[in-house]
Design a protein around this nucleic acid. Structure first.
Lengths: 233, 233
DNA sequence: CAAATGCTTCGATTAAGGTCGAACTATGAA
DNA sequence: TTCATAGTTCGACCTTAATCGAAGCATTTG
């Protein structure tokens, strides 16, 4: 019999409530210190220290030292993808930790997932781009078409700059609130930062909610219209 | 303070080595019995039973009862997606375990399941009858249509005799080699016995293999042609 | 009917690991 | 230097749950 596969090891790491809280807190893409993460998880500092060491050993966290601080962040977007899909499963099975509230609605509408836009508006970006054939699948890979490249360049995204970073340009990420995909990868990140740069939206780092201004919402609707016919799920 | 889905609960379910083994064994889409899953996980049957109950409570597994067997399969593609992304994270060694079902090709082709025909040829009977609307679902129940009754009567099955026995005439039975359904119930039993009566096939009681004669195979293909388009699973 | 098979429940044991108090190290500031 | 802050290590407690033997159901077979 094979030894316990690594999948159990990783899942067990996420499976502790305190660690799961820490990881969820890091889903906004920002790095947090050990003390901050201890507060997020609701445990003492020494307990948090032990958890963080385990998460780092498991390769789920990346560490940056700055003076006497230790800043932790998710190791990569793959970790974020796992967390996001886990949220989808848990939400679908009805395992919500708290009742739904107004904050929940805002989270469902627009939130930060790692470093890109998620929620209904994130899904809308993805589907709008897919509908116009700006994004397309080539085999398993999600690609930006020439027309799509022109579109995002015109929108103000520096594609040449992105090309220098060696990680996937476009990636699909499963949304836990809507059960559709939204756009992740370098392009997803660039689009969110462009929304911020245009003054369309600002990110509440605490709650992960993305607040759109009235003008921002208007511009967003113009640039990313919903497809006429809703795609079959 | 905490909002969002309870990912720790789901992750902890996957985080136990025995359960992770079971889930990975189900990744090929086939349904397995509790006993088979116990062997996959390397635990005793009673331990497996406890694990399976937990996985089912967590909404990760779907159950189909089949006589005294319980066939478990992944609840939906979302579960598979989580498992796959977890495997991606556990980057190291690509543990791709391909556990096959029946060891013998003959068993996979045609065998006795209780008292009716199973294996590829059993599936073929079922799908051929469904395709011609000889069998149809009314709600959850599988029924023989009037045209179907005429067909099987013409084939030499004594339907009046079957009507006297008080058990379902048609039943769906999950095939353990193909993941499709084949025909069980009184009609399934009657068809197999008709095959034997016609000299088309004989049953090896020891191995459960059903051996078709060349003429039998020819007649079988004529009576139960494969549907032109394979049904989507 | 009795025997066999597939699975569940009960109970006791045992191992793992999450938790925090207290003491310790390391960095930075006055 | 001394003090303060950030984080780690140690040790002890304690909850959780994984495990299997044995007995109990449920279904099918003969």
């Amino acid at each position: 019999m094979k030894e316990g596969p690594d999948i159990a090891y990783i899942a067990a790491l996420i499976g502790d409530p305190a660690r799961a809280n820490m990881l969820t807190a890091l889903m906004n893409g920002k790095a947090l210190t050990a003390t901050e993460l201890a507060a997020e998880a609701g445990v003492t500092l020494q307990t948090a220290s032990s958890h963080l060491a385990k998460l780092q050993d498991g390769g789920l966290l990346r560490l940056r030292r700055q003076g006497r601080h230790k800043y932790f962040s998710l190791a990569d977007s793959g970790v974020a993808a796992v967390l996001e899909s886990l949220m989808g499963l848990a939400a679908g099975a009805g395992h919500l930790r708290t009742r739904t509230g107004p904050k929940d609605l805002a989270l469902r509408t627009a939130r930060v997932c790692y470093n890109h836009l998620a929620g209904d508006m994130g899904v809308q970006v993805f589907e709008s781009l897919m509908d116009r054939k700006y994004l397309e699948f080539r085999g398993d890979e999600l690609c930006l078409s020439p027309a799509g490249a022109a579109f995002v360049a015109d929108f103000g995204v520096d594609l040449d700059g992105l090309a220098r970073i060696r990680s996937p340009l476009c990636r699909e990420c499963l949304d836990w609130s809507a059960r559709r995909s939204h756009l992740a990868g370098k392009l997803g990140r660039a689009l969110l930062s462009r929304f911020a740069g245009l003054g369309w939206a600002r990110v509440d780092k605490k709650t992960r909610i993305v607040h759109f201004s009235p003008e921002g919402e208007k511009g967003f609707r113009a640039m990313f219209p919903v497809p006429r016919t809703a795609p079959i799920d």
